[in-house]
Design a protein around this nucleic acid. Sequence first.
DNA 1: AGCACGCCGACT
DNA 2: GTCGGCGTGCTC
Length: 808
Amino acid sequence: MTQFAKIIVDVPTMQTDQPYTYSIPELLTHQIEIGMRVVVPFGNGKRLVQGFVIEIIDNNQFDGDVKAIQSVVDLKPVVNTELLDLSAWIANETFSFRITALQMVLPSVMRATYKKRIQLIDEIDESLQDKLFQGNDSIEFDSEHMDAELMKELLQLTKAGKAELIYEVGNKAKFKMQLSIQPELGFEAYEDIKNGLRKNAKQQHLLVNYLQSLTENENNLIPQKQVVKEIGITTATITSGEKNGWLKKIETEVYRDPYKDTVIESTGMQKLTPDQDIAVTAVDEAIKNEINKTFLLQGVTGSGKTEVYLQTIAKALELGKTALMLVPEIALTPQMVKRVKSRFGDLVAVLHSGLSDGERYDEWRRIERKEAQVVVGARSAVFAPLDNIGIIIVDEEHESSYKQEETPRYHARDIVLWRSQRHHCPVILGSATPSLESRARAQKGVYEWLQLPQRINGQPMPEVTLVDMREEMKNTGESNFSEPLRNEITKRLEKKEQTVLMLNRRGFSSFVMCRDCGFVLPCPNCDTSLTLHMDTHTMKCHYCGHEEGIPKICPNCHSRKIRYYGTGTQKVEEELKTLYPEARILRMDVDTTRKKGAHEKILAKFGAKEADILLGTQMIAKGLDFPDVTLVGVLNADTALSLPDFRSSERTFQLLTQVSGRAGRADKEGQVVVQTFNPDHYAIQYAKHHDYESFYRKEMAIRHMENYPPYYYTIQLTASYTDEAGAAKKMLEAVQFLKPALSDKAIILGPTPKSIMRVNNRFYYQVVIKYKSEEQLKERLRELMTKSQAEVRKGLRLTIDSEPVNFI
DNA sequence: AGCACGCCGACT
DNA sequence: GTCGGCGTGCTC
């Protein structure tokens, strides 16, 4: 009996965002399973696309002609039922397409590649064939790069029936294979062969001896490369050995191991403090009883959260379960990875953005084949194809990088909670400064609250000194370094201790300004100014990537007095060098860490005490742990505070608390100097006193008053268009459309232009809706998307972001 | 997305 | 007259 399959096709549009029914050809009946990728004809002509099988049914519910599946891509399913369900849920929650959500849960190499080619099917004039096909009988048809004249002629040929258009669906994923050899005979047989060999056949002797020794081994599959190197014979000898039937050659898959060259010593469990012990016991209990429960593990820097994570992971493994641990990208340092690997060895798979597509795919396969049972990774690692998860950990749970800023705009924390329900396992959300959302849930008892209030070594938190830059400016003028900070740096240099200096990301760019007329070089495509990049000696736009030369004379008034301003890390570094000519300085920012591994190199250098001062952006706030750092300086604590985002206080508090924790972790006492223009701001004051609880209460009061999360949910709509009026009109229309479906408790903010209204010559307008419970909202938003399709074709872009992390 | 169909302007 | 512009509809 003919079976049918429901398939999500790889055509990411609203109109095609639904399962299509295809018949399963007889030949493929026993091959096709749910979760496999297939190639199907779609649309007019012979267009082929990839699709995912999401259901297999016995009777066709579609009244119309069904087409048959063309071919199967996979030997076994690549998406299990859990991830299939998860992707459907994500598509629904984030207003994205099912195909996009499906592709997101898989490594990017598994995405299909499409090619067209023109195949000659009839005899044509030889000179014409030379011209059009370069002597071949088919040619790739690439309408983007092809010569227009050539294309026209090829199409004419197709129309005349002399050639046809062929669609090809490719697959980028390749296993890296390696040739290995294996003995074919037993010990005795090799003995006989040896006796039969000529005396001077030295290489053959070596080979047979080697094969004979392998017969004793359990694992007798040895890479050919290794054999050649080890016993010094040629591959020719091995090949003739194969011909003689002494051995066989086998192709095996090898994994690209990015950590191949790092030697890792194994470490055991550490002794727990009483607080840690309470936490571990509570989580272990939940793992054992398969209780889907969320713990908020709130522990100050240095309180040993990581040890709690590692011991609960050990518990899960002990029970035959797997573990997933998420870490923010910037905290996923070699130190961090080493710590996990040293505990669990080869059971660990690591997924982070630094991996090549191939490496990422290999790690994914190790997980899928259950060779790796512990997964450590950044945001997208939440989709690791683990089975039977025992514990999920989200470290630094407050980090905004857990939210994906492109569609599907998911938050890893939400995915984690979904998966924990599916696997009946507990979740640990860990942080020194939990997000208000999570902390409030702990308050309400939705999460179980675990605390680690003490540092492991019983050390006090470092002393934080605030420097009022308004006062300082009067004395020191334009310097980035206040007198108190300079004095402290001098002291460290004398005592041969290390200093870390942090420059807040926002407002840290250098721009070019004319001293005579005040002209600032703007980006031609965006409403921003270009920033100076000394490494490439160009002016760049951070939003659209536009790049141009550094002007020598002012384009506006032709003055020669055009200089660069602002506090880029490079400029600060220069000032540091003049202040402390003898100090060894390392700079860490986007420019110096662009190359792969550069980040690690800088940290390793600093760790080896090859520098006195480490200067960097926020990337230095996370995960670095150097015992000789006794001074942490924050050059501009409050640049984020002035931003029109309700989370700016929270971010400032979190950042300051986090960097403070970097000072004096071992036996030496640390000190923190924070330069600020708002020394009285509560975020800065509470950070100075390491007082999360007071900050939490104060901030909650403000959120309550202003109707922001966690008291309200938020949704942000953004429209962009090539003309400003179009974008504004669309958002106005959206408000008109949504309003009737909302209760009077919902609050609509906007439409307003985005703070950078024009990016890459598109204009952006937004609307934010704050609400507590709106039954119809999501459905209405979906309708809005559907009815806007016609405009999308004309260039409108409409995005819906549920619980956005950036409001500007 | 990508392709066909269909209806209007300026050319071999 | 026809080639080709892009607005519209459809894809199991």
